[in-house]
Amino acid sequence: MGGFLTRNRLRGAAWLLGLLCLAGLFLSPRAAAMTAEEIIQRRDSNEYVQTVIVEAEMVILNNNRKLTKAMTSYADGDNALTIFTNPRDRGTKFLKRGDELWMFFPDAEELVKISGHMLNQGMMGSDFSYQDIMESDKLTDLYEFQLVGEEELDGRQCYVLEGTAIPGEEVSYHRRKAWIDRERFVGLKEELYARSGRLLKVMTTTKVEQFEDRWYPVEAVMEDKLRKNTRTEFIVKSIEFNPVIPTETFTLENLR
């Protein structure tokens, strides 16, 4: 999953690190004069990696129930493979190939294509829907962003951007509002709205780390605002940028 997110963030995706969203560029002297689109594009460019391997943990909190899932993700371009490694889900795999999402259950030895209304369900019971992880188009192609102001968020100065879906474009969320760290160009918070104006999800970055020349969000929380007392924490344990991943990693044969 981490892999999916990282690679799709370049494309403005919501997948994993994409859900962590809006990683930053270093503040440049021109930053203050930047337009909303430039901010988004520089954030996207900053986050883009051709290939990535991520080890991560997903902590799902639902009322008093707490589930922890560990995973390793491999991503290359539009393809990504996530393998769950915690005892309960060990061997469960997700494969994203372009616009298709496949899941493999080791107990049933069954390969399932996730499509239609199943995409709206929470991935492995989390607050991330399958659709969230499938978004892979560039956000600036889908939304018209506006810089609506600047705010301080948890002690960090942020640009506040608001994106509204371009009419006719297929997007999951009609409107999204993002808080981007002014200094590091990391997305610190994002609100996702339905067309009715109702807030559906809030993703908050809780920890950012520097990897050589880039800042990367490594911990984030996703909250489904339609449901009370539920949230999912996503924690990157380790991340390797630009590794060599064999092409056959992303085949259906490898999923079984």
Binding site: E169, H174, A194, R195, L200
Partner: peptide
């Protein structure tokens, strides 16, 4: 109740 739907453009919408 809230009904979460996807409209013609595949965009989430809610019906309260």
């Amino acid at each position: 109740v809230i009904l979460l739907v996807r409209d013609k453009n595949n965009t989430f919408n809610t019906i309260e």
